[in-house]
Amino acid sequence: MNQNLEEINMKKIISLIAAIGLTTSMYANDNTGCGLGSLVIKDQSTVMLQVLAATTNGTSGSQTFGITSGTSNCNKPSNFVANDKLNQFVGENMDELALDISAGKGETLSTVAKLMNVENTPEFSAKLQANFSNIYTSENVTSATVIDSIAKYM
């Protein structure tokens, strides 16, 4: 009976190691991700150290903060637009915004420019008008995709 208990425990340990290995396979082998794990565990030359770094990143929640703030060995994305008002406004005004961008002017487009802190609205509007088909790529385009596309022309 003791042997069966040891065998069950060994299977649990092997399953746990396999699960951790699958979780960390999402990360590149030489880059386990940014966050607390990458700061604390600088030597990631072995699989076990990479697993520990990735697990630390995942369980501490520091990776998300690092990505959005550009800290903890993370690079802040260049197209990142963190503006809840912008997200809500574009989501609620997709059709009007499309019309304004196609015309190169309009109240909806001006509001988006203000929410994105654009300094030269006429130049910004002209860029968006010239790239309308790259912003509104289909009838089913999402507001998040539209915002990301617009951000490229800031």
Rank of each mutant, 00 (worst) to 15 (best):
C34A: 12
C34K: 09
G35V: 02
G37H: 10
G37N: 12
V40A: 13
D43F: 15
Q44N: 13
T46R: 03
T46S: 11
Q50L: 12
Q50P: 02
Q50A: 13
V51Y: 11
L52S: 11
L52H: 04
A54N: 13
T55A: 11
T55R: 01
N57S: 05
N57R: 01
N57V: 05
G58F: 07
S60P: 03
S60K: 02
G61A: 08
G61N: 04
S62C: 11
S62V: 07
Q63L: 13
T64H: 06
T64D: 05
T64L: 13
F65A: 11
G66T: 05
I67V: 15
I67L: 14
G70Y: 14
T71W: 11
S72P: 03
S72I: 15
N73I: 05
C74P: 03
K76R: 14
P77V: 11
N79V: 06
F80R: 15
V81P: 00
V81G: 02
N83L: 04
F89Q: 02
G91K: 11
E92C: 08
M94I: 12
E96D: 10
E96H: 09
L97I: 06
L99H: 07
I101D: 01
A103V: 01
K105A: 04
K105D: 00
G106D: 01
E107T: 07
L109F: 01
T111S: 09
V112L: 09
N117K: 11
N117Y: 06
V118F: 04
E119F: 12
T121V: 09
T121M: 03
P122D: 05
P122L: 10
E123H: 10
E123S: 15
S125N: 07
S125H: 00
A126R: 09
A126F: 07
L128P: 00
L128A: 02
Q129D: 01
Q129E: 10
A130T: 08
F132R: 12
S133K: 13
I135P: 01
I135T: 06
Y136C: 09
T137N: 08
T137M: 10
V141D: 04
T142C: 15
T142M: 15
S143C: 08
T145D: 12
T145A: 15
T145R: 11
V146L: 08
V146Y: 02
V146K: 00
I147K: 00
D148R: 04
S149Y: 03
S149G: 10
I150S: 00
I150F: 00
A151Y: 02
A151M: 05
A151R: 06
K152M: 10
K152S: 12
Y153F: 13
Y153E: 04
Y153S: 03
M154Y: 10
